[in-house]
Write a protein that binds this DNA or RNA. Sequence first.
RNA 1: GCUGGUGUAGCUCAAUUGGCAGAGCAGCUGAUUUGUAAUCAGCAGGUCGCCGGUUCAAGUCCGGCCACCAGCUCCA
Length: 635
Amino acid sequence: MLKLTLKDGSVLSVEPGVSCADIAAQISAGLARVALCAQVDDEVVDLCFVPTKDCRLSILTGDSEGGLHALRHTASHVLAQAVKRLYPDVKLTIGPAIENGFYYDFDTDLPFTPEVLEKLEVEMKKIVKEALELKRFELPRDQAVAYMAEKGESYKVELIEALPEDEAISFYTQGEFTDLCAGPHVPDTGRVKVFKLINCTGAYWRGDSKNKMLQRIYGTCFNKKDELEAYLTRLEEAKKRDHRRIGRELDLFDIYDEGPGFPFFLPKGMVLRNLLENFWREEHAKAGYEEIRTPIILDESLWHRSGHWDHYKNNMYFTKIDDADYALKPMNCPGGMLVYKRRMHSYRDLPRRMAEMGLVHRHELSGALHGLMRVRCFTQDDAHIFMTPEQIEPEIIGVIDLIDHFYKVFGFAYTVELSTRPEDSMGSDAQWELATSALQNALDHKKIDYKINAGDGAFYGPKIDFHLRDCIGRTWQCGTIQLDFQMPERFELEYVGADGEKHRPVMIHRVAFGSIERFIAILTEQYAGAFPTWLAPVQAVVLPITDRSSDYAKDVLEKLKAAGVRAEIDLRNEKIGFKIREAQLKKVPYMLVIGDKEAEANQVSVRSRAGVDVGVMPLSDFLARLSDEVEKKVL
RNA sequence: GCUGGUGUAGCUCAAUUGGCAGAGCAGCUGAUUUGUAAUCAGCAGGUCGCCGGUUCAAGUCCGGCCACCAGCUCCA
């Protein structure tokens, strides 16, 4: 039971979720905003609420997720109001609250430079100080259109016209400013105290690249100042973790002007990459996969047959060999088809799980390139599973288990999305129906929560996507499981069933890492370059204090190497503090400090990169500790 | 690809209104033999992203490309 304190001081007791009409019946204020504060479970809280579209009273406390959302939404209105005050000719479009703040898209020729953003912030502060009350009102459709048309807000007119016929068209007014909006909002602009405009970028009207590009201003807003500061600190932290910076600092990889989107892997990056591949091979062998490798360049006719020509041509690279047309593979599947077709298969041999570390080339738009996250050539840890229709569900479950295991090893949490049939696709409705429900059944069987992305599937089938959540809360699409009835059809794949007749197999495309390159980028940011010992390109560095100890130090290095440890030595004539600093900056897990005492006692002094003095011990003790850590893949 | 921004030494950044290209770190050389995150000194390092234009004179102004950054679109 909620106690609503009304503006006139009277108190009203209502059930949570009570309809506004019921409240209206109890008070004379009608459907307008009814309360300023409320008592919830004997605790008085600030209410950020307005009747929602379906006229349910939503109680949003300031600290709740919904409350913050409402606050940010109001902040976007404050921004729009400030823009209209300073630049009346700018046309409004949309301005929602988003995960970390809000944005508003404007149609204007004026570029919103940092100086303009500063002016806007000043104006916004004025609006906040004015503490303008947000009032909601509704208009019939034709009046709503006329109202916005009169203001010259053509985008708003377009939005209203796109609303469902039966939907109430609501507006919010604050002072001289009124915006088409479904709400909810906080009661007045005075609540938007802690905000900051972040930047300005371009964005297409309605997210369609065929439409006009608008100017988008991003901002963020919080309840408390320290929350905003924490958020800004987190952004700084993310910058420090940027894999492009760390990749260069730790000599993992580099990208040159001569090959935009085509990364070079340096010796240390190759160590990391090979370790990931070794892990991948071991796990796939255990899970019953065979490994193949198919060519990068294949005859263009293959791509006509696979359907890539019709659906993926714009992203492909082409070449000629002896006047014949060839293409660089953008995906590995057609090669896998040819391997399957080498001979007749029995149902007894299925499923066949054929894995491939496949190097693919895709022409990504220049503006989409981003370090190792988005490149034009990358290695997919691909696999194609050929199976009978009865094997679909258990095979999908097997892949889900494998991917789950992979992410746990690296310490990632993940979310799952199911993408359904896109507009540009091939195959029959019945096939898509079957494929989609097969994926759904597997997810339900594993009791995995998932979100549905309607129309986001591949052109040949629906897919399950795995999005990794890194340690600072960002998500990245990595693993994907795609069910495909089309490719086996197109390539006329067959197997002989128990009935002696020929049947068409079903195929799964799947990746676990996604791409080695992207996975390395994510790992780099997840660990901020401090890779767990089992993955660290250099696991230990030997640091002699003076050259009196260098012979013993070299001896230690040899023993480490003989034991399979990736070790280096720093024989430079520098002070120990300096050598430690450098090893620390290179994120080497262990530093073995060696001076006269250690040489004398035949021991090593172990320091971890966490800054912990692990102690003086015989080398064998250190080796035991290290191999245990590597064996267990300690994070 | 689109919108906005940026491009000076390996890295991070300076360089009045157009007027002799600079610093710190890294690098190299020498000295220092050092006990858990920076020893000192010296040297070297540049077609100011590329091409063209304006000018007595361009890192600086104009145009065209290229790359990068933030988004949008797309996506492993």
